[in-house]
C-alpha cells in the first residue's frame, strides 16, 4: 500500500535561517506519526509546508497520492488540521464556525454530529471568546473533522492546556486511531509522543535525527542503565569488578551503583557476588531508559531547554 504521506528532501528557509533541511519521511495509512523535537526544531515549519500554509523552497510532498505543491486545494479537500492555536472571530459560535467551514468542502459532516462527538453541545451557541482553552482546542479538532478527512494534522494540540483538557484531547486522538484515521502529530511532550504515536521522528535543527516506534528507539539506544543497590553490611567494591560490562562502579558503605547495557546479565552477577561475600541485599533500583534519554543521547540537549 502506498504511503499516505511521503515527504522527500523538504527544505524551507526564512531569510538566512534554514528551518527545514532536507526532511524525508513517510506515513502509512492508519498510522499516528509523531514529530518530536524542541521548539524551533522545524516541526511546525515542516507541517505547515505539508498542509499548504507555507511554500517550501524545495522538496517533494505527496499527500494521499496527490502532489501537494501542484494541487494544494485538492489536498486541502482531503485533510484536516488543527494548529497550535486556532483563532476565530470573537462572536462566532461553535455551530456557526462548523457550518461555515463545512461549506468550504465537497464532503462535510453535519455540525450537530461534530458538536456531539467533541462534547461541545452545551457550548454550541456560545461565542468563541467565552470558550475555555480546552473547549477552543476541541472546537479546533472539530473543525479539522468537518470534511471527514483521510488525514489529520495536529500541530502541538495540547500545548498550553491544563492536565484535564490534555487527557481529554489524548482520548480524542486515540479515538481517531481507532477509527482508522491517519494522523501527523507534532509535539514536544515526550510522554504524549510515547503514549499516542505508532512511530515518531526525532527532529532537531531542521533535520530528522531518527525515526521509529518509541520502544524500538529505546531498544536501539546505546545508553546504559543505572543500577543502584543497598546492602545490610558494607560491601567490598571488588564485587562490582566481576560484573561483565559494568561501568562507573562506585561503593560507599552499604550503598553501591554501576552502569550497564545488559541488565539481564549484570543483575545475576551482582547477586552472585553479594552472596559470595555473604552480604544480604536489602534494596535494588534499576533505572529505565526513557525516550527523553534517547532524545538527549541523539541530540545532545534536553527537550525543554
Amino acid at each position: 500500500m502506498p504511503a499516505k504521506v511521503s515527504i522527500r528532501d523538504l527544505r524551507k528557509s526564512y531569510g538566512g535561517v534554514e528551518a527545514v533541511r532536507g526532511v524525508t519521511f513517510e506515513i502509512q495509512d492508519g498510522e499516528i506519526f509523531g514529530m518530536l523535537g524542541p521548539n524551533g526544531a522545524g516541526k511546525t515549519s515542516t507541517l505547515e509546508c505539508v498542509i499548504g500554509l507555507r511554500e517550501p523552497d524545495g522538496g517533494e510532498i505527496d499527500v494521499c497520492g496527490i502532489d501537494a505543491r501542484k494541487h494544494p486545494q485538492e489536498v486541502k479537500q482531503r485533510i484536516g488540521a488543527a494548529l497550535q492555536t486556532t483563532s476565530l472571530q470573537d462572536k462566532i459560535t461553535a455551530r456557526e464556525a462548523l457550518q461555515l467551514f463545512g461549506s468550504f468542502y465537497r464532503h462535510r459532516v453535519p455540525a450537530a454530529d461534530l458538536l456531539k462527538r467533541f462534547s461541545l453541545e452545551e457550548k454550541a451557541d456560545a461565542p468563541f471568546d467565552t470558550l475555555s482553552g480546552g473547549q477552543k482546542q476541541r472546537l479546533a479538532l472539530a473543525l479539522a473533522f468537518v470534511n471527514n478527512p483521510e488525514l489529520v494534522f495536529l500541530d502541538e494540540p495540547t500545548t498550553g492546556l491544563d492536565p484535564q483538557s490534555r487527557r481529554e484531547l489524548h482520548g480524542e486522538i486515540a479515538q481517531m486511531k481507532r477509527e482508522g484515521h491517519t494522523v501527523l502529530l507534532t509535539t514536544h511532550y515526550i510522554e504524549e509522543a510515547e503514549q499516542l504515536c505508532d512511530r515518531i521522528a526525532i527532529v532537531d535543527h531542521g533535520r530528522i535525527i531518527t525515526t521509529g516506534a518509541p520502544k524500538d528507539l529505546i531498544a536501539a539506544s546505546k545508553l546504559t542503565q543505572l543500577v543502584s543497590f543497598e546492602t545490610a553490611r558494607p560491601v567490598d567494591a571488588a564485587v562490582l569488578a566481576r560484573i561483565p560490562g559494568a561501568s562507573e562502579p562506585a561503593v560507599d558503605g552499604v550503598h553501591g551503583r554501576f552502569r550497564t547495557r545488559d541488565i539481564s546479565r549484570a543483575l545475576p552477577e551482582l547477586i552472585k557476588g553479594l552472596e559470595a561475600q555473604q552480604v544480604p541485599l536489602v534494596g535494588l533500583n534499576v533505572g529505565k531508559i526513557t525516550l527523553e534519554d534517547v532524545f538527549i543521547e541523539l541530540t545532545g540537549s534536553k527537550l525543554r531547554e
Binding site: 500554509l53 486541502k76 494548529l83 486556532t86 476565530l88 468550504f104
Partner: peptide, 14 residues
C-alpha cells in the same frame, strides 16, 4: 492579525 484568516487558509476556500 489574530490568525482568523490563517484558519481559513487551511481550508480549500480561495
Amino acid at each position: 492579525e489574530r490568525g482568523v484568516w490563517r484558519r481559513y487558509r487551511l481550508s480549500p476556500v480561495s
